[in-house]
Amino acid sequence: MSRIPNRIFAILILVLLPCTESLFAQDAIRVVTTTPDLADIVRQVGGSRVDVTSLTRGSEDLHKVRPRPRLLNTLFRADALVQIGLDLEHSWLPQLLNAARNPKIRPGSPGFINCSAGIEPLDIPEAITRKEGPDLHIKGNPHYNLSPIQGRKIVTNVIEGLCLQSPQYCEEYRTRGNEYLKTLDKKIAEWKERLKPLKGAAFIEYHPTWSYFAKDFGLLIVDRIESKAGVTPQAAHIAKVVEIANQKNVGLIISRPANKDLALKVASNCNANVVVLPYLSSTTGTLQGYIPFMEIVVSTFEKNLKLAKR
């Protein structure tokens, strides 16, 4: 054989390589989730019928995820994609979906499972202008995963999504999903009972994150350290937050790891503790799993708000 046909053969192999994926398809549905919370819920509902991968580990700021080969390849091979939505993943997921060109997970296809369907978003901005902050979420606060009550909605959305994906196992998904919902309901009742004495307790957060959680348990967010979404606060704003913290006798400031320094700065001028809390569960360690993660969140609030009350 001459050299030219060899080259053409090599090019053909390279070009057709992506198509060979389907020849080696596995029985389990390859489900990709954007966060570890969603991955855990999909595992609980899908059992052995699903092979789940989370695109993030839980320690990331979801605005700072860098599109990279591992994420692209995972999406390319996915049968279904489960996402939080409400623009939480907007800075990286649409670009990866566009590059992956996987028709199974295109928006509108059965494999595109948007867990924000049916959620009533909080913190919808009244004015849609960048003057309200460069990181403004125009569809509302996307951190509904921090509400166990909204977590129920995630579970039902996942059940429906998986049923659309593989109707033959739908009954199985419903049975498992309902079992998980029972466990979650039991925990919600327990958490409500534990946080009942703290109803009306006030805290400060850095960025609009804990609105859904506060609503579930009757807690009060009295101010935010971030002056506007995505804007690092100036001294005048920090002074205002300190004043409010002192006026309302706030004893707890919830911060993200990256903003701990500013939270400590506020805390040093008022009688409040700073607690660093992630807003997602993790793929490893003690924060693994949605319910165990929420248990840690509830315990943290319970412990620190009690301390603040004293």
Binding site: L14, V15, L17, P18, P69, R70, L72, N73, T74, F76, R77, A99
Partner: peptide, 12 residues
């Protein structure tokens, strides 16, 4: 333009 995944974490 064309790309292909190679393994889990590489692409050409």
């Amino acid at each position: 333009h064309w790309w292909s995944p190679i393994g889990d974490a590489s692409l050409l």
